[in-house]
């Protein structure tokens, strides 16, 4: 149980300590990657609560989503269209949905406990 927390802390500290800078035009990719990671994370939690959690799907989804989001942003930049908005939109909607489902699950759990 402690292992994920430790790794989270390590990741955060590593992120804070790294010194290399990304050129300004790539900052979009970063934000979208963060969004994708967040989405996948909450998706995983939801799947866990639904008891449909699959490691492979979770892991592949995590990296694939990040990659797809970055690709979309890249395409958007190249084509001059704000394509990354699609990713932001999709991930945002999914994020809210997942959080809503998680909330519902938590309420149900509390109810069933009572």
């Amino acid at each position: 149980m402690w292992l994920p927390a430790i790794f989270l802390i390590i990741g955060i500290s590593l992120g804070l300590l790294t010194d290399f800078t990304v050129p300004d035009q790539y900052s979009q990719y970063l934000s979208i990657a963060v969004l994708a990671a967040l989405d996948t994370l909450f998706g995983g939690i939801r799947a866990h609560l639904d008891q449909t959690f699959d490691q492979k799907i979770f892991l592949s989804g995590f990296f694939f989503n990040i990659g797809l989001a970055v690709l979309l942003a890249f395409l958007g930049v190249k084509l001059g269209i704000d394509l990354y908005l699609a990713a932001v939109f999709a991930f945002g909607v999914r994020l809210f949905q997942n959080i809503a489902i998680i909330r519902r699950h938590l309420f149900q759990k509390r109810k069933s406990k009572k």
Binding site: L3, L8, G15
Partner: peptide, 22 residues
């Protein structure tokens, strides 16, 4: 499962912290 969670959280934490710092 824990290993996968660690990996994902590691990447996630890194991304978030890095973008925050950036």
């Amino acid at each position: 499962r824990h290993v996968i969670m660690s990996l994902v959280l590691f990447v996630f934490g890194f991304l978030v912290a890095y973008s925050y710092q950036y």
